[in-house]
């Protein structure tokens, strides 16, 4: 990975683009910019960026539409950058193929972390069968999780949930996508079940279940497993 990877920023605000350019290039990325959805589409096709940062409020084409159009052929990660108070839009974007999201105003450190997670997961490299998060280790092959070297008593559903979150660590998963993945289509909308299992899981894996550090709630969107 000596070649700097290109990141395409589609945002109509010059100032935001400028900020991202400075931050990202100083972190070893190459930047291409687009101010409108149309420009963004063209730029994505010509530059083949390794990752796209997309603002949902674009002047010409609706952000979601832009996302769908890009996703028709583009396989690499897309991170949504959006203003707050638009949970529905964010969920909609995530359901339509966005990998992650960040609300404005954002901390650049957080953005860089999201970008790294997204790029790493996209590398397609074999997922290590044993994942380690501080004192927690998860053995995906043998369906075993250990906390402080002690084997945790997990039900099979609890383990599936833990495994799904851990495999996607650092990335947000919406309530509905988790429900679909673990319980199946019939359970979409049954968020109370998910809450029950998250609460149980936290009791088992967290040091202090009242102050979770691993299984983090994303208000109104879903859950994120700490990287």
């Amino acid at each position: 990975m000596n070649l700097p990877e290109t990141i395409l920023v589609i945002d109509d605000e010059v100032q935001i683009r400028r900020l991202l350019e400075i931050t990202l290039s100083s972190n070893g990325f190459k930047i291409s910019e687009a101010g409108t959805g149309r420009e963004g589409l063209v730029s994505a096709a010509t530059h083949h960026p390794a990752l796209i940062i997309l603002d949902l409020g674009l002047p010409d084409i609706d952000g979601i539409e832009t996302l769908k159009k890009i996703r028709e052929w583009y396989q690499k990660p897309i991170i949504i950058l959006s203003v707050k108070n638009s949970e529905d839009d964010i969920i909609n974007a995530l359901d339509n193929g966005a990998n992650d999201y960040l609300t404005k105003p954002f901390k650049t450190g957080e953005l860089l972390a999201r970008i790294r997670v997204a790029l790493r997961q996209n590398q397609g490299s074999e997922v290590d069968p044993i994942l380690t998060f501080g004192t927690l280790t998860i053995d995906l092959a043998n369906h075993i999780a250990r906390k402080n070297e002690e084997i945790l008593k997990l039900t099979s559903t609890e383990f599936s949930l833990l495994a799904l979150l851990a495999k996607n660590s650092g990335r947000v998963l919406t309530h509905q996508s988790i429900l679909k993945e673990i319980w199946g289509f019939g359970y979409i909308g049954q968020t109370q079940i998910l809450r029950v299992f998250v609460a149980q899981l936290r009791k088992k894996i967290e040091d202090d279940p009242a102050k979770p550090k691993l299984l983090i709630t994303e208000s109104g969107i879903g859950y994120r497993f700490h990287e």
Binding site: R195, V198, P209, G220
Partner: peptide, 17 residues
């Protein structure tokens, strides 16, 4: 309001954090 099931622990934790 978008009513959804919520764990009060989660809510308070989020705010205090």
């Amino acid at each position: 309001p978008r009513f959804d099931w919520c764990d009060i622990h989660d809510l308070i934790n989020k705010v205090t954090e």
